[in-house]
Each structure stands twice: as structure tokens, then as C-alpha cells.
Amino acid sequence: MSGLTKRVSTLEGSLTILSDINFTVKSGESVAIVGASGSGKSTLLSLLAGLDIASEGDVHLDGEALSTLDEEARARVRAEKIGFVFQSFMLVQSLTALENVMLPAELAGDHDAKKQAIELLEKVGLSHRLEHYPSQLSGGEQQRVAIARAFIGSPKILFADEPSANLDSKNGHLIETLLFDLNKQNGTTLVLVTHDEQLAKQCQRIIHIEGGQLEKISEGGAANVG
């Protein structure tokens, strides 16, 4: 990305949330974006994933300049190339675990969705919970469903927003391990937003955001692994 800036208008005038952010993530790399609450890391994630557009600058995702695309075209990019894991799981309550995992593939018109979804749920250890609804699953199980969903359709990039923040430490670790394992198996590029330094260290690089500005980029614990 280059010169990424995000401003929002408030009652008190224009507020700059992100200012002139520049960095590049290589294919297959794992990157953590860290920063305190309100530092702008979630906004950065939303721009990187094409959920929002920058006020200035641009994001080039696998060769496509997101700022030149409209909402529909960005949705197509997301459908083809991106997977998501959210802090609050964001499962559709009226669909079963299996159907939630199938959802992105079905939206993209993939006919092979069910087979892929069952395989992924087996990988996250939920083959016995296929027909359960989100309200019948624990928090950890719901996040595992969300991880399975993120990998369906073999996305090139995975964005994870505080994936373990809503879970106890045991379940949190389980989820983190699962996320990194699947990431490695699929050779996906991982962009992880977290305020947890330990989790960040598991990535190859760490991007520090402070007050909406890129403070520094450091190497993570997994720098030499990938």
C-alpha cells in the first residue's frame, strides 16, 4: 500500500484516523498489526480488505488497486481472494456450522462447497458438530467454525481481527495454533490485527501503529520460518 490515509468527518471537523501508511506484504507472509486501542489498526484492516476505501493513497491487493473498484467489484475481490476471522465470530445464527462454512462458497456460486466445508470442519475438530447452530456451540467452537469458513475457497489472503480476544486463554491458544497451522498448510498470506504482543510474535513481521501512524516494522518470532 502507498500513502494510505483515512479521514472521517465529525461534528468537530475532519479527524485523521490513519496517516500516510506505507508497507508491502509479500505473498505467503504472515504479518501482525499491533497497537493500543484506538490506534487505528482495525481501520487499517478494513482498508486492506476492501471493506472501506481510503481518503488518500491506495491498496494494491494481488495486483488490483482497490480504490479504483466499486463496492460490487471489491465484493468480488473478497469472494475470490480473501478470508476473514473476526473477534465476535460473526456467524449467521440461522445457519448450522456446516452451512456457515459453506456460505462464502455458495455466495460465489461454488457447487463443491459441501465437500470442502466438511473437510475443513474435520480439520478444526468439529466433524461431530456439523448440524449444530451457533447458539448451540461454545465460543471456542464458534471461532473454529469461523476459521473453517475463512479457509473455504482457498483464499490468497486471510485477515484476522483479534481472533482470540473473546476467548479464555486455553481456547485462545487453541484457536491461534489452528489459525497458524491452517495458514501454513494452505500457503495463505495472513494479516492479523491484535493487541497481544505474544500472538504478534508468532508472525514473521510486526507492524506497529500508534496514533494512526506507522511507528515501526519489526521482525516477529516466525521471521525465519516462512
Binding site: E71, R78, A79, E80, F84, V92, R149
Partner: peptide, 16 residues
């Protein structure tokens, strides 16, 4: 609202 936002995030087009 939430399911729709989710579907859009997962690449669902406005038309679908």
C-alpha cells in the same frame, strides 16, 4: 443487518 454485512464481507454481491 449483521447477516447482510457478513454476506457482503464474504463476497456476496448486492444483486445476490
Amino acid at each position: 443487518y449483521d447477516p447482510v454485512a457478513m454476506m457482503k464481507t464474504l463476497g456476496g454481491s448486492r444483486k445476490v
